Amino acid sequence: MSQAPRNAQRMPPEPSQKHLLIIEDDKGSRQLVLDEPVYSIGRDLDCDIRLASLFVSRRHATLVRVSMGDGDYTYRIVDGDLDGQRSANGLLINGKQLQSHDLQNEDKVVFGPRVQFTYFYLSRDPAPTEPPDGIFDDVTLINPRTADKSRPLDSLEIPLSRPPRQLNLIRRRVQSLLGFLNLNREERLRFRSERSQ
């Protein structure tokens, strides 16, 4: 068995989840990836997430990481700061006035007029990114010259024994090939008509 060199550094695995905020305020729109356990939100210069609006309190809200078990977590938004001081306008979360809420994918939090963020929870698929060997064993490419002219190329059937993800990949590749074949057929017809003139 071969051993890895002692001084070889291992890259840490990428996290299987990503927490993202799309923030909109008086300065425009921006995105922020959440990775810290606590964030203060407000218009104060010391806040971790600064919101540009006079409708936002200096310390408007707090985001706190909350474990969901199995290594997954989400963020809970709480009105005000960690000392219990609440904001002047409160929080409107998905259209409801709430003091705290465990954020879920695509939750919208409004702090005031034209000041809000949308939370996104992105889970990374631990499956390999490359298709497994033999994914195209059941696909037969047809030469257009020898194909049955009574059956259109668009009616190619794909066996349903594959998982949906693999089927989608196969369908996209077949559609790409069909598009290429149709393009070549149109070019050949155009070339023939130009030669005959």
Rank of each mutant, 00 (worst) to 15 (best):
S2M: 11
Q3L: 15
P5S: 14
A8G: 02
Q9T: 02
Q9R: 01
R10E: 01
M11Y: 00
S16Y: 04
H19F: 01
I22V: 13
I22L: 15
E24S: 03
E24L: 01
E24H: 03
E24M: 01
D25A: 00
D26R: 05
K27W: 01
G28R: 00
S29W: 02
R30M: 04
Q31T: 11
Q31D: 12
L32N: 03
V33L: 13
D35Q: 08
D35L: 01
D35G: 02
P37G: 02
S40N: 13
I41Y: 05
L45I: 10
D46F: 12
D46R: 15
D46N: 15
D48G: 08
I49R: 09
A52P: 00
A52G: 00
S53R: 06
V56M: 08
S57V: 12
R59G: 06
H60W: 11
T62N: 02
T62C: 04
M68Q: 12
G69A: 07
D70N: 09
G71Y: 04
T74R: 00
R76D: 06
R76A: 07
I77N: 02
I77H: 00
V78Q: 01
V78C: 00
D79Q: 03
G80L: 00
D81S: 06
D83T: 14
Q85E: 06
R86M: 04
G90D: 09
N94E: 04
N94G: 06
G95I: 12
L98G: 07
L98H: 10
Q99C: 05
S100A: 11
S100D: 13
D102Y: 06
L103Q: 11
Q104A: 14
D107W: 05
K108I: 01
K108Y: 00
F111H: 07
P113E: 15
P113H: 13
R114H: 03
V115I: 10
Y119R: 05
Y121W: 01
L122S: 07
S123L: 11
D125L: 06
D125N: 13
D125H: 02
D125W: 02
A127H: 08
A127R: 14
T129L: 15
E130V: 14
G134R: 05
G134V: 05
I135M: 14
D138M: 08
V139I: 15
L141R: 11
N143T: 07
N143K: 08
R145V: 06
D148S: 03
K149S: 05
S150G: 04
P152I: 02
L153W: 06
E157D: 14
I158W: 09
I158H: 08
P159L: 11
L160K: 15
S161H: 15
R162S: 12
R162M: 15
P163F: 05
P163S: 11
P164M: 10
R165H: 09
R165G: 05
L167D: 07
L167G: 12
L167C: 09
N168Y: 11
N168K: 14
I170G: 05
I170A: 04
I170F: 08
R173C: 10
R173N: 08
R173T: 08
Q175M: 12
S176N: 14
S176R: 13
L177W: 12
L178P: 03
L178D: 06
F180Q: 13
L181D: 11
L181Q: 15
N182R: 13
N182F: 05
N182W: 06
L183E: 09
L183N: 10
L183R: 13
L183F: 14
N184K: 13
E186Q: 13
L189S: 10
L189R: 12
R190P: 01
F191D: 15
S193C: 04
R195G: 06
Q197P: 04
